[in-house]
């Protein structure tokens, strides 16, 4: 990881020579499922297109607007998903940001929020595939314990906000309004947030492979 460039060698490789990107227009690709997340105003946007065969992702193409780590992480995700003849849909649906970051060999902590988008875009594409074929997604979205009962904010919601840079309580509260009604959850919520912050940001580079 210790390179004098902005990112490690593997990120650099995926950024300079990305794999599986869609060269032409999305319409011409005839995807079985398509998903987009992010917005240009935030500086990151990803589009994932998949083809499905026998319950597996047979092809994966993408387009990304964003920084080097956003481009590299979508490229890494495409390789991860297409390895060994393509991931099964349910495994693909469960791909986490941690897997993408580990595949890249770590990302700077302040860049994690970029790569969170790839897995979300893939989930959206799989959802779209099921919808188009009138099928029900067999994977229920993981139930996450509710932390703020008043406003229905879950542990997963807190985790996602931390990944997107809400490393202090004020920012988390600004974005989710957590603990602004009865306020009883505040202490617990702050502890949960602190644990995630410690997990993702205690080192300059976050690499899930090196987690104890």
């Amino acid at each position: 990881m210790d390179t004098n460039w902005a990112y490690n060698e593997n990120v650099k490789k995926h950024f300079m020579t990305p794999k599986n990107m869609l060269a032409g227009a999305p319409e011409d690709y005839h995807a079985d499922g398509e998903g987009s997340v992010g917005s240009p105003a935030c500086g990151d946007m990803m589009m994932v297109l998949i083809k499905v065969k026998d319950g597996r992702i047979a092809d994966f193409k993408w387009k990304t607007f964003g920084c080097a780590s956003a481009i590299a992480s979508t490229s890494a995700l495409s390789e991860l998903v297409l390895e060994n003849g393509g991931m099964k849909l349910d495994d693909a649906y469960r791909v986490t940001p941690e897997q993408i970051i580990a595949y890249l060999g770590g990302l700077p902590a302040n860049k994690i929020h970029c790569s969170v988008l790839g897995d979300k875009a893939l989930q959206a594409a799989i959802d779209d595939y099921y919808k188009k074929n009138n099928l029900t997604n067999p994977i229920k979205k993981a139930e996450s314990p509710i932390v703020c009962q008043c406003l229905n904010v879950s542990e997963e919601d807190i985790r996602m906000e931390v990944l997107e840079g809400a490393t202090n309580w004020e920012t988390l509260q600004e974005r989710t309004k957590i603990g602004t009604v009865c306020g009883k959850c505040q202490e617990n919520a702050k502890q949960i947030q602190a644990n995630f912050v410690k997990r993702y940001y205690s080192e300059k580079t976050y690499n899930p492979d090196k987690e104890a």
């Binding site: 460039w5 950024f15 300079m16 607007f65 920084c67 080097a68 956003a70």
Partner: peptide
């Protein structure tokens, strides 16, 4: 338009 500055900067850097 349509692209992001850091990725331009880093590719030019290389």
């Amino acid at each position: 338009k349509y692209i992001e500055g850091e990725s331009i900067l880093l590719r030019l850097d290389l």
